[in-house]
Amino acid sequence: MHELLLFASVPTHQHHELLRQLAGLTAMQPHHRVERRLVFKAYRKPGVITTRVGASQDVQGADMQRLNKMLNGGMFYTQVVGPVSELAFGAKPSSSRNPDALMSGMGELPPSNENADNSYAYENQPWKLEFRDIPEAGTRSAVTSRLMASSTLPKGDIIESMNAWGYSFVTEYVVEGDIFIHNDIVIFLHRVLHYPTEGQEPNEPRRILPPFETMTPLERTGSYVLQAAITVQDGGNQEMMKTASQHLFGLREQLKSAVRLEQADRLSLDTRAK
């Protein structure tokens, strides 16, 4: 699968207005979204793992194959993404007493929706592995284009599984923003939030989330990133790739009086682990 993207930087003061404009453009209310994002880095040469990862009951066979293929391709940074509810921040941890119930809730629902009380069960956190290649070089079209794949991971603690695949935890952050859908294009107006730093950065994902108010934007003026993305099933199909970039250009044109959507600097999206 291929992903074509355009980006724009959105200053804080323009954020609200842009939300309105996007709501108008896409004729929909924004879908608010908060995601935990864990950054992992490959530490082992590829092609040596044939491990059966434990605790992977909720990963289907096809997904499993895809995972293996993705993770054994080369030395890459990769992301593990998990949706959370804003309510989960600052909530007390809840241990999962009923593992069967957890298995059934395999959907995309943030865990705290399942529990009436405001608690956050790390064991119940769904994850997705999002693999992205370095954007293609030398494409003359003015969009960022890259190979992508994603796959569902086991819930809860994924460190062990990732280690087994040869990946080590680097850091984690939170992405907060709003999603709009414009035909084939997913528009995500978001920003990166940092966890409050109390001494040592933990070297594994947090099990408890701090209150949302204590999260600080990476970009300290609070600016947002506008990302417009479109996925193409078969990246080898030039016709489709062209159509997709034309759709993105159309959007760029429609938004031009508000923001300037551009191709990203290729090296800033370099996922290769050196």
Partner: peptide, 26 residues
């Protein structure tokens, strides 16, 4: 293009590329 009236414009200080790099590799 309507100027927002309730906030004074502040240009972002971190370039987009840096943000994307952080998101990609930490």
């Amino acid at each position: 293009a309507v100027a927002s009236q309730d906030q004074t414009p502040v240009a972002p200080v971190v370039p987009l590329g840096e943000i994307l790099r952080y998101m990609t590799t930490g």
